[in-house]
Design a protein around this nucleic acid. Structure first.
Lengths: 336, 336
DNA sequence: CATAAAAATACAATCGATTGTATTTTGGTA
DNA sequence: TACCAAAATACAATCGATTGTATTTTTATG
C-alpha cells in the first residue's frame, strides 16, 4: 500500500523544517506568504491530507460528537439526527452515530467506545432497558459534556432537551373526553423511560380532572412496536365492555392496532377514536388519518447540538432542561 | 478540567514501565497474570480509557467507516444506514455518518474530512449534483477502499451494490401497459444519477417492446421531492390529452402527485394508474395504496458493509458490481 | 559598514499507545 | 554457591502534527 504523504515528506522534499510546513498549512503568519504558497502548492500536488488523528492527539480535541439513539431508521430519530448533523456540519464538527437498539448492554459498550474515541461531547436518548447508570457516570467522571433528548435522564447532571410530554398527553386525553369518550385505553411503554411515565401521568390527570375513574385494566404496557399494536387490538376486542377510545404513547402501535381493529369491523373513529404520539409522516396517509402529537424532531436535533456545542466551549455552564414546542394535531381518527 | 488517566499515570502509580502497562491492558502474555491483574484492577479503579487517537495513530488503523448519503432521514437511506451500523458494530467498527444533501460542494468537503480522519473505508451514495470526480479520485489515490450503493459510480474502480433498476422499471412500465395503459408519464431525476438513467431506459424499453411511441412531452425531470410532485400534477392536468398512467422514479413525488390529482377530482387508479419506486412505508397506507419497487435497503446496507470490510482486509480483491434482489410490489394505485 | 531589531526558519519536546530490543530478575540445576 | 536459561520487565523509537524556544537570516538605520 502506498504510504500517505506527511508533513515530514514535504519537509524533506522542500528542504524545510516540518514545523514550518505545519505552520504554512495552517496559514500561520510566522511563515512568509511566498514560502506558504510554495508549500501549499506542493502539498496539493502530492495529495497531502492532514492526519486528523495526529492533529487531534496533539490538540486534545477531536471536533467529533458521539450520538447514541435507540434506532437510526425511525422517522422521529432519523429526523433528529438530520438536525444534529446539520448544526454539527455548520460548526465543523463530525458526528459518530450509533444505535443501542434499546438494549442496555449495547448502550454500555457504545458509551465506552465513544469515550475511548475522545469525542468532545455526546448526544443521547437512553434505551428502554436502561435502569442502571454506571456507564453514564463514567461519562460524567471523564467530564465529557452530554445532552439527553426526548427521554429525560436525571441520573447524572446534564442538559435535557424535551417536549412537555405530560401536557400533550393531558391535552390528547382531554380531547378524547371532550368529544364524549369515557372508556379510554392507554398504550404505554417501558417504565424506565420518562416519556412514557409522563404520558401516562398526563392521561391519568385528564381522567381525574373529568371525574372518570381510572381503570387499570385499560392500561396496556408493551414495547410499542407494530406487532404489539396488533396484539393489543385483539386483547381489546376480548374485553367485556369495548372501550370507545385509545390514546397510544406512539404512532406505530396506534396504526397497527387501528388496522387490526378495522379488519374486525370496528369503525374508526365512530366506535373507537384513536390518538397517537410522534406524528409519524405515514399517520397523515392512513385511513382515517391519525391524530397525533408533533414533537418537532428537526428542531430538537438542532437545539440539542447547539446546546452541546455551547457546553463544550463553556464547560462550567449551568445544566438545565429545555422544553421545546410541541402540538396536538387532530386528524380523522379522533374527529367525527 | 480534570485530566484523563493515561498509561503513564498508571506506570507512575504502580512503578512499572508504560510498555508493561500497555501490554497488560492488551492481555499480552509477556506480562505475568499477577501483574496483569494488578494493572487491570488499578486501571478500572482509576477509570482508565484507552486513548483511541493515540492507539490508532500508532497502528495506522481506525476501525472506522465513513458513510456519505444524500439525506439521513429518508426511509430508504436511514434503513440502509441501520444495516451498515449493524454489520459494523458486529465487527467492532465505528461509523461516521454524513449527509451531502445532494450537493456536490458538501460532498467534496465531506470526502476530504473523511480522508483526513483516516477512515479505513467509505460507503457512499453519490449526490444528484455530482458530475465531476476529482474528489473521488483523491479517495482512490489514497487507496482508501470505497463501496458505492444504490447509485452506480464508475468514475473510479470500486464495488457497486445495486439493484437492477432497468429491469424493475421495465417491469413496472410493462405492468401498466398490460393493464391497458397507453399514455404513460415518467417522472425522472438528475441525469447525473445512474438509477434515474436506468429507470428511464427501462421505461423506454417497455414502451418500445409494446410498440408505443415514446413521447418526450410525457417525460418530466425534477428533483423528485414532494413539492415537485405537486407541480408535476398541475402540469399533467394542463395537457390537452390527459395521460392514463404515471411511472415515477420515486415514491415521494408519486404520492404528492397522487394527492394533488385527487384533489382535482382525478380517480386513481381508474383515470390514472400510478407506480412509484422505493417502497416507502407510507405507500402502504395511502389511499389508494401505492404500487412500488422494494429495494431491500437493510440488506443493501449490510452487504455494502460486508463488501467494504472484506476489501479493507483484502486490498487486492477484484472490484465488482453486485445486483441485489428487488421486486415490484403491486398495490391499489395500479390495479383496478 | 556595523549593528541592532525584526523576520524567517530550525530545533526539540509533546500528545498517548505500541513494539522491537535490551536489561534485569527469577528459578532451577550442577 | 555459581551459573545459565527463561521469564519478566525496562528502554527507546515511532506514529504525524503542533508549538514554545532557539537560532539564523534579512532588513533597516546610524
Amino acid at each position: 500500500m502506498k504510504k500517505k504523504v506527511t508533513i515530514h515528506d514535504l519537509a524533506r522534499i522542500l528542504k524545510k523544517d516540518s514545523s514550518t510546513i505545519s505552520r504554512a498549512l495552517a496559514n500561520n503568519p510566522r511563515v512568509t506568504k511566498k514560502t506558504r504558497d510554495l508549500i501549499q502548492a506542493k502539498a496539493k500536488e502530492l495529495g497531502y491530507f492532514r492526519n486528523t488523528l495526529a492533529s487531534n492527539l496533539r490538540s486534545q480535541k477531536t471536533r467529533t460528537i458521539g450520538v447514541i439513539v435507540p434506532h437510526i431508521s425511525r422517522y422521529f430519530l432519523s429526523t433528529v439526527i438530520a438536525g444534529i448533523e446539520e448544526v454539527a456540519f455548520e460548526n465543523d464538527y463530525r458526528v459518530i452515530i450509533c444505535q443501542s437498539l434499546d438494549q442496555l448492554e449495547r448502550e454500555k459498550q457504545l458509551t465506552d467506545t465513544l469515550l475511548s474515541s475522545q469525542v468532545d461531547g455526546i448526544i443521547m436518548s437512553i434505551s428502554m432497558e436502561t435502569n442502571q447508570y454506571e456507564h453514564l457516570e463514567k461519562i460524567e467522571t471523564q467530564k465529557t459534556p452530554i445532552v439527553f433528548f426526548d427521554r429525560k435522564c436525571e441520573a447524572i447532571p446534564a442538559n435535557n432537551i424535551l417536549i412537555d410530554d405530560f401536557a400533550r398527553a393531558f391535552e390528547a386525553t382531554e380531547h378524547l373526553i371532550l368529544s364524549g369518550r369515557k372508556r379510554i385505553v392507554h398504550f404505554t411503554g417501558s417504565e424506565n423511560v420518562s416519556i412514557y411515565q409522563d404520558r401516562l401521568k398526563g392521561y391519568k390527570e385528564a381522567l381525574h380532572k373529568h371525574n372518570i375513574t381510572e381503570d387499570p385494566t385499560l392500561i396496556y404496557k408493551s414495547s410499542l412496536k407494530p406487532a404489539d399494536g396488533k396484539i393489543l387490538a385483539r386483547q381489546i376486542l376480548e374485553l367485556k365492555e369495548i372501550p370507545d377510545a385509545i390514546f397510544s404513547a406512539n404512532d406505530l402501535a396506534a396504526i397497527s392496532c387501528m388496522q387490526e381493529l378495522q379488519e374486525s369491523g370496528v369503525k374508526i373513529p365512530h366506535d373507537i377514536a384513536i390518538v397517537g404520539f410522534s406524528n409519524e409522516p405515514l399517520g397523515a396517509y392512513t385511513s382515517p388519518s391519525l391524530s397525533s402529537v408533533n414533537q418537532n424532531p428537526l428542531e430538537m436535533g438542532k437545539i440539542a447540538t447547539q446546546t452541546l456545542l455551547h457546553q463544550i466551549e463553556n464547560p462550567d455552564v449551568v445544566q438545565e432542561t429545555k422544553l421545546l414546542d410541541s402540538s396536538l394535531i387532530l386528524r380523522n381518527s379522533s374527529i367525527i
